[in-house]
């Protein structure tokens, strides 16, 4: 564990809490992609399946439970809460799950470290996490005006990924024999997806203007 990894995990948690707080406080999920949230829930469940029999550290276990729990709450709010569900922008959140899930499933069967069920599910979760933000980015693009909290949510998520890259660089430099190609390449693709958003986020912040994405 190094400081970059720790900062990444905290930023990840913070991003989820910002979103949950926004939904809870405003009783609105306008601008939030349910598709992305459900994909993240699928990512967490397939990756943390080993929670009950593979104990690595209390730190990891607590984060796994918290990520699954908080993301489930977001999905519950958006699907079931009587007021919140009315604010869900289903007409614009039309990205097809299959376009992301199917290629990731095929890829995880073809490229993985060990050919067994849990390893394949873990690999699937790595590939799916890399692209799970796409429905959210498409929704932001479509609705153009991005409210502050939604913008902060995506920004914090991107920052979490950036810190994971720093963590890998640090580990590569300090841990002899450390390499994780599959995770690195997926992580680089994932972080790359945020670059465009980052550019507009920083521009808006510098000019103290509301974040607006170009068409």
């Amino acid at each position: 564990m190094n400081l970059f990894r720790f900062a990444g995990d905290i930023l990840h948690l913070l991003s989820i809490l910002v979103l949950l707080l926004k939904i809870h406080a405003t009783k609105s999920c306008a601008g939030i992609s349910l598709k992305t949230q459900e994909l993240y829930l699928a990512v967490f469940i397939t990756r943390y399946l080993d929670l009950f029999w593979n104990f690595h550290s209390l730190y990891n276990s607590v984060f796994k439970v918290v990520y699954i729990g908080t993301t489930s709450m977001i999905v519950w709010y958006m699907r079931r809460h009587r007021n919140v569900k009315l604010t869900y922008d289903r007409d614009h959140d039309t990205f097809r799950y299959l376009f992301l899930v199917a290629p990731c499933a095929v890829l995880s069967l073809l490229i993985n470290a060990r050919y067994n069920l849990f390893e394949i599910l873990w690999t699937f979760s790595i590939y799916l996490e890399a692209v799970a933000i796409l429905p959210q980015l498409v929704l932001l693009q479509r609705t153009k005006n991005v409210d502050n909290l939604t913008g902060n949510y995506v920004f914090l998520l991107g920052l979490y990924r950036a810190f994971y890259i720093l963590n890998w660089v640090y580990r590569f430099a300090t841990e002899p024999g450390y390499s994780a190609w599959l995770v690195w390449i997926s992580g680089l693709i994932q972080t790359g997806l945020y670059l465009d958003f980052f550019y507009y986020y920083v521009q808006a912040w510098k000019q103290s203007k509301k974040l607006q994405l170009p068409s």
Binding site: R5, N54, K64, R114, Y164, N167, V183
Partner: peptide, 10 residues
Amino acid sequence: DDDEVEHDEL
């Protein structure tokens, strides 16, 4: 048992 791969990150 080398069938297990260690995943130490989240």
